[in-house]
Each structure stands twice: as structure tokens, then as C-alpha cells.
Computed example of a mutant assay.
Amino acid sequence: MDPCEVVVAVDLGGTRMKCGLVAADGAVLHRETRPTPRADARDGGRAVLDALLETVVELGQKATAEGHRVRAVGVVVPGVIDAEHGTVGAENLEWVGTPVLAELQAAVRAAHGDHVPIVLAHDVRAGGYAEFRQGALAGTTNSMFLPLGTGIAAAMIVDGSLVSGDGYAGELGHSKFIHGDAAELCACGQWGCLETVASAAAMARRYTARTGRTVDGAREVMQLLAAGDPDAAQVWHDALAALVDALVLYTTLVAPTRIAIGGGLVGAGETLLQPLREGVHARLTFQREPEIVAAVLGEEAGMLGAAQMAWDRAGADEEEQR
């Protein structure tokens, strides 16, 4: 492999980190996954942060050993990112105001010096950016990426730009769509959030609560649905109803022309997408109706978005120096 300039890209979302060395033309010269350590409140999620730092440094060392020049580092994480201070709050990682950017800067500086810029961004926004630049949202100026996985968050493209909101935007999963006695307590502290009904984790949990039978995630619920299980059908119906409400609200407020659904649940294909299309169509009156499609970049979307953001930063820094 000929030496070239690369960025180090790491997506910390999920149970495994998705990592890559990515060239300026988008070619992934090296890809790997690594386990994300189980977060522990007793150490404030330190083991997770240490694993992330080690991964970034080792990927940079690999690039250097192969003769490549590391131009930038892109890291994307779940949770809420304070863009001004570079801190992250992520309940599933046991991070509370954790200075992730400062830790990354220190580790990268020790390995490569002061010349390598670092981008820290949200994993879902990065996935949406990748879909916007090279995936299912390419060619749009107003669109949304909505992955349905362990949790639910949205990446919003508005007037051709990715909306960050200083790191806080896009938490559609923590909007209230379930009311009354049906509302459940969300991990965020609110009752009735979309995520409590329509995430993959919620579907498995709600099926178990209805039946007393433990299932192996949303995939097994979908298998039971296909086999005609009435409890799986009710869990699925509740999830679809809440998702239609969320998509109608988003469409009314932001008017996307296309919505790309990603995450584990999109594996259901048209079993998911067609009812969403029909439900949204039936509810809209004056609003512009969006296309509802499957995202195309899969589990690599976040890593590819991290790489694209890192290359954008490298290019912007180069322009400033001219």
C-alpha cells in the first residue's frame, strides 16, 4: 500500500468501537472493531475513556508504521456533548461532564505533536453526516437520519447544514409521545419518551414485561411477530404508532424531503418502512411529505462520518494557514 495522508476515525457508539484509517478520497485503508469495556460508575467510566484513548493512539501508530501521515483524528460518541468545553455526559458510559476532548488532545499530542487537529462529535450526527455526504441522504438539503437502536436520536440536515445545537440537538428519542398510564420512566428521567417504546431495547423489554418471557433483543421480537405472536404484534404496533407521531411532528416543524431510517430495527425492511410511510401519509394535510427510506451505510456510518468531519477540519485548518 502506497503511503498517503489519513485520518484516524473511531465511533464509540454501541458495544463495539468501529475504527478506521481513512484517506482523503474516502477510501478506508484499515478497519477494525474493538470491544467497548463495560461502563462502571465506580470509576466514572474511566475504563471506557482509557480504551478510547488507547485505540486512537494505536491506530495512529499503525498509520505511522505504514508510512502514512496522520492529518486529523475524528472521534464520535453517544450522549450530550458540550461543544464549548469538550465535555460529554453519557449515562450508558457513566460519563458526567467528562473532559473527553482534553484527554484526546493530550494523548494525541504525546503521540504526534501539536499539529494534529481533533474532532469530537455525536455518533448519530456523524452517521447522519455520512449518509448526507455519501449515502441515503445525498442530494438533499433538508432531511433526517433516524437510527433505531438501543436508543433513539436524530441527525438533522437543515438548509444544507448539519444541525449541532452546540452539541445538544437531535434528541428526538427524549421527546414525550406516550401519555397517561401507558407512559414509562425513561433513563433520562422523563416519562413517556419515544425511546421507551420505539427503541430496539424497549421492544425487547416491553415484550418481556407483557409475557414474562425473556427474549434475545428486538430481533427475536420480530421473529415472533412474523410467526403471528399477538404480544409481539402489540409491542410492534405501539412502537410504530409512536414513531409515526414523531415523524409527523418532525415533518411539520422542519419539512424534510427525505428521512433515512437506520439502526438495528431497519433490518425489518418493509415490515417497518411501509407502515411508517402509510402512517405518515395518512396524517399529513398541508405538510410536505417526505420520502422514508432505509439508510445505506450500516454500522460504519458513524465511523465514516467521523472521518469526513476530521477531513473537513484538516481542510479548514489548512485554509486558515494560507
Rank of each mutant, 00 (worst) to 15 (best):
Y129V: 12
Y129E: 01
A130F: 00
A130R: 08
A130G: 11
A130T: 12
E131Y: 00
E131S: 02
E131R: 01
F132H: 04
R133D: 09
R133Q: 11
Q134A: 11
Q134Y: 07
G135D: 14
A136R: 01
L137C: 06
L137P: 03
A138H: 07
A138R: 12
G139Q: 05
G139S: 13
G139Y: 13
G139D: 13
T140Q: 07
T140F: 13
T140K: 01
T141M: 06
N142V: 15
S143C: 14
S143V: 09
S143K: 08
S143G: 07
S143T: 13
S143N: 14
M144N: 05
M144I: 09
M144Q: 06
F145M: 11
F145P: 00
L146T: 15
L146E: 02
P147H: 06
L148A: 03
L148Y: 02
L148D: 14
G149H: 06
G149F: 11
G149V: 12
G149A: 11
G149Q: 13
T150F: 02
T150V: 11
T150A: 10
T150G: 14
G151A: 11
G151E: 05
G151C: 09
I152H: 01
I152K: 02
A153C: 13
A154K: 03
A154P: 00
A154S: 08
A155V: 14
A155D: 02
M156R: 06
I157G: 01
I157S: 03
I157W: 00
I157Q: 01
V158H: 09
V158K: 14
D159I: 15
G160V: 13
G160I: 12
G160R: 09
S161R: 06
S161C: 06
S161K: 13
L162K: 03
L162N: 05
V163Y: 04
V163A: 07
V163M: 08
S164P: 13
S164M: 09
S164I: 13
S164V: 08
S164C: 15
G165W: 00
G165M: 15
G165K: 12
G165N: 10
D166A: 14
D166T: 09
D166L: 13
D166Y: 15
G167Q: 04
G167I: 15
G167V: 12
G167T: 09
Y168D: 08
Y168N: 03
Y168G: 05
Y168P: 07
A169D: 08
A169R: 03
A169N: 04
A169S: 13
G170L: 09
G170P: 00
E171F: 15
E171H: 12
E171V: 10
E171R: 13
L172Q: 03
L172T: 08
L172W: 03
G173H: 02
H174M: 05
H174A: 07
S175E: 11
S175Y: 06
S175M: 05
K176A: 08
K176Q: 14
F177C: 10
F177T: 04
I178K: 00
I178M: 06
H179Q: 11
H179Y: 12
H179L: 06
D181N: 01
D181K: 00
A182F: 10
A182E: 10
A182N: 04
A182K: 12
A182R: 01
A183I: 14
A183M: 03
